[in-house]
Simulated scan of single mutants.
Amino acid sequence: MRRFTDENGWLYAVNRSNTKAVPFRCKPNQLFVRKEYYTEVDSDGSKNSRMELRLSQLESEISPILAKFMAAAEANKLPDLSRHQKSLWDKFFLLQYRRVPDLRDDDSWKNALEEYAQITSRLKKEFPHRVEEIEAFESDEEKIRMVNNAYVNMLDLPPGEPEKVLNRRGIILLRSARNKKFVIGSRPVIQMNMKNGRTLHDSYSEMWLPIASNLAIGVGTMWEKEKILDLENHSGMRYLNEAIARNSTSFASASLKLTQSIAMRC
């Protein structure tokens, strides 16, 4: 977040859930923050912060790689990540896509609660002698607790097909157009060019994660390990920034003028 601030350390943000969408100024530690968001809660109310600690550790491990991306882009050289660094980056990239509150939108919650109801209904049929025990898990409070815990545990799934595909695809360092800035959204990883059933298996599909006002990291092709690209025109910047803003409940940038302009379009 600090890589998106102005020269005085400020961000200019917009909450799109507010109908007026008026930009406000804030510090990086005041935006996209939810206390104990990745904490599991047991039925007795005790809390398990293992995922909070694991994410904190991963962020510490990824920091040198982010610095490496920044230095490579500035020097116009490829970052030359090791296999371990690439694997670590792929893991972080997917987590940035999966972990954000915006992923728990209304449709996602509705689907999760419907599936939860199906599970409890099936359990009561299979274990009729434990109906009273199962019904204790059907209160609104228990449903929310269990679904929240499920979201947290989802972040700890073993590597699957997405990780395998990212491992086969390279990395693109996308430098901003001259004197232009990327925005950062509450849903920071944006999918593009994925219509008509296109997936990450298709090298023409795109996913981008801005890591600074002047640099975004994307999923590369199957035949190139690493590549640096420059956005030559402002329309490309605008297209990507608007896509990030449209898919995020809130977004921010280092420029009040840019934030206002994007807000008016989205």
Rank of each mutant, 00 (worst) to 15 (best):
L258W: 04
L231N: 13
A177D: 06
T221V: 13
T249W: 08
H234Y: 14
E232N: 12
G218V: 08
P158Y: 06
I211Q: 01
H201Q: 05
V152A: 08
M264H: 03
A212T: 00
M194F: 11
R178M: 04
F182G: 06
Q191K: 10
D202Q: 03
D140F: 14
W223N: 15
L209K: 03
L240M: 11
R238P: 06
A263I: 02
E142K: 01
K143H: 14
A177N: 07
K195V: 10
Q191Y: 12
A150V: 12
E135Q: 09
M207R: 07
N233H: 15
L229K: 08
V219N: 05
R246M: 02
N196W: 13
I262A: 00
E232C: 13
Y239C: 09
L240I: 11
A136M: 06
L173C: 06
L215M: 07
S261Y: 02
R246G: 01
N233G: 12
S186Q: 05
L215A: 01
S203R: 14
N196M: 10
E232W: 15
H234P: 11
R178A: 12
I184K: 03
S253D: 06
S176V: 01
S253R: 02
M222H: 15
R246D: 03
T249N: 05
A254W: 07
V189W: 04
M146Y: 15
I217K: 01
S213E: 08
S250I: 03
